[in-house]
Each structure stands twice: as structure tokens, then as C-alpha cells.
């Protein structure tokens, strides 16, 4: 566990120090695109992945409702509660 703690901290430090500086100097224009890339990948993985497989379940509908709320410029709390309640309700009736 010490290895894990040190390793995960090391990766974070690497990002804000050496790697960060190199990436910024060499690949400056790329950095502004990283949030779009990483968040988008995170969204699809969290929405469709279960134990290494792609799965369609109630989550997809819930996230869809959340996305709709984002599009309608709803506050973050509404987005969260909306996606949760739709997903929970679907699971309750299926």
C-alpha cells in the first residue's frame, strides 16, 4: 500500500512539475484540448462500462436526462438529482 500511495502521489506530482512543463513547452496547443478529451472518455466509460464490458442499462437513460439538464443550463444539483432519480426509478420498475 505504501507503493500505491507513493506511486499515485508521484504521478500527480509528475503532472504538475516535470511532465506538465514539458507538455506545455512542446505541445502547448494540446493542453487546452485535454479536458475535452479526458472528460469525454471518462463519461462514456462511466456510462457504458461494467466489469470490462460495454453494457446498456438504466445508467444510460439517467445520464441522458442529466445531459438534457446541462443543455437546458440547469444548476449542477438539478443535473445530479435528475440523473440519479431517473436511474433509480428505472431500476425500481425493471
Amino acid at each position: 500500500m505504501i507503493v500505491l500511495a507513493a506511486g499515485s502521489y508521484g504521478l500527480k506530482v509528475l503532472g504538475v512539475t516535470a511532465l506538465g512543463a514539458v507538455v506545455e513547452r512542446r505541445l502547448g496547443p494540446l493542453v487546452s484540448l485535454l479536458p475535452a478529451v479526458l472528460f469525454s472518455a471518462l463519461i462514456v466509460v462511466m456510462t457504458f462500462e461494467t466489469a470490462g464490458e460495454l453494457v446498456l442499462d438504466a445508467r444510460v437513460v439517467g445520464v441522458g436526462v442529466g445531459a438534457l439538464a446541462v443543455w437546458r443550463k440547469a444548476p449542477l444539483l438539478v443535473v445530479i438529482v435528475g440523473s440519479m432519480s431517473v436511474t433509480a426509478a428505472l431500476r425500481l420498475i425493471t
Binding site: F39, L76, A89
Partner: peptide, 20 residues
């Protein structure tokens, strides 16, 4: 999962992706 919390996180990131 009963409370749909697993859908909340991707939804949060959808909201945070919007500006990008």
C-alpha cells in the same frame, strides 16, 4: 446503484465538459 449514484458521476462530467 439502488440510488442511481453511478449515473450521477458521468452526468457531473457532462456538465463540466460543456465549457470545453
Amino acid at each position: 446503484e439502488t440510488w442511481g449514484l453511478d449515473a450521477a458521476f458521468p452526468a457531473i462530467f457532462v456538465a463540466l465538459l460543456a465549457t470545453h
